[in-house]
Amino acid sequence: MADQPVRRAGRPPSTVDGRTVPERLLGVARKLFAEKGFEGTSVQDVVAAAGVTKGALYHYFGSKDELLYEIYGRVLRMQTDRLEEAAAREGPIAERVHAAAADVVVTTMENLESTTIFFRSLHQLSEEKRKEVRRERRRYHQTFRAMIEEGQASGVFRDDIEADLIVDYFFGSVHHLPMWWKPRGRLSEEEIGRSFADLLLSSLTVRRPA
């Protein structure tokens, strides 16, 4: 996914080599955090690699902490927007859950570096930023859980398992992706997304007598 500029009040961000300063800072920070770790990367490392001043970094992000937060935050916001769009569509609930489940797998793999960096360094965020992340992730999970509950209420999904457990089980598998998935493997992102979604739906769908 292409980086989108951080939105701040005032004039539009200036550009460096065709990229806005926030885009350049985020791209450089992501690369350095992956190579050296969050703790091993200084603000000076980031601004030197980005070719900007410390004042520019602090204008757009305020701190190295906020850079880390934004690397993952933009991925989570994108995934939340896509989930809410899927949840609002018309059509059978099973199809909507399948689409949403496949999408979060694919978008996680497409942004694997950002996701891996963030979860590896989450404990180094300030308590305030950790709370923001938990709040945004809770919003995502609540929307996904509501879709499961809709399927249970309509008799399409089995209701002998709590929706919260279903959500935790599925997303535990999604969050484990960085531990084993490598780009250019035997299966594409789309094939793995469909397989995860198929497994979820096959475990949820009520089997009707023939």
Rank of each mutant, 00 (worst) to 15 (best):
V106Q: 10
H123D: 07
T205F: 11
V105S: 09
Q79P: 04
A94C: 04
W181F: 13
R82G: 07
I166W: 08
A100G: 01
Q152F: 00
T115F: 13
V16P: 03
L204N: 01
H175N: 03
G10K: 12
A48V: 01
S14G: 14
E136L: 12
A2D: 03
I148Y: 03
I192K: 11
E113W: 14
G27E: 01
P209Y: 11
S121Q: 09
V97D: 05
V43Q: 02
D81H: 14
Y72R: 11
L199P: 01
R139P: 04
Y140R: 09
K131Q: 06
F171S: 00
A88Y: 07
L200E: 03
E190I: 04
A210H: 02
L165S: 12
F118N: 09
R8F: 02
M1E: 04
D159M: 11
E110R: 15
G18H: 07
E191Y: 13
L199T: 03
D17L: 01
F33Q: 05
G193I: 04
M147C: 08
L187Y: 13
E113F: 11
R74F: 10
P13N: 13
L57F: 11
M1N: 02
E23R: 14
Q44G: 03
T107G: 07
A94D: 04
E66T: 10
R137H: 08
P209H: 15
I93K: 10
E39M: 06
E128M: 14
W180N: 04
R11S: 05
E39T: 06
S203A: 14
S42K: 12
G172F: 04
E113P: 01
F170W: 04
F61E: 00
G185H: 10
S173P: 06
T41C: 02
L187S: 03
D168Q: 13
L76I: 02
W181N: 06
F157K: 12
R145Q: 05
P13D: 14
K31F: 02
H59V: 07
S154H: 05
E136R: 15
R19Q: 10
K64F: 00
G91H: 04
L32V: 05
D3F: 15
V28S: 05
G10M: 08
V97P: 02
V52Q: 08
F157G: 10
E35R: 12
D164T: 09
L26Y: 10
L67E: 05
R8N: 09
S154F: 00
Y72C: 03
P22H: 15
L26A: 12
L32Y: 05
D65E: 09
S202Q: 12
Q152S: 06
P178R: 14
V174F: 15
E85K: 15
E90R: 01
R194C: 00
D45F: 02
K129F: 07
R96S: 09
L165A: 11
R130T: 02
I93W: 08
R207L: 14
A34E: 07
D65R: 14
I148L: 12
D159I: 04
L112V: 01
Y60D: 06
F144N: 01
A153C: 03
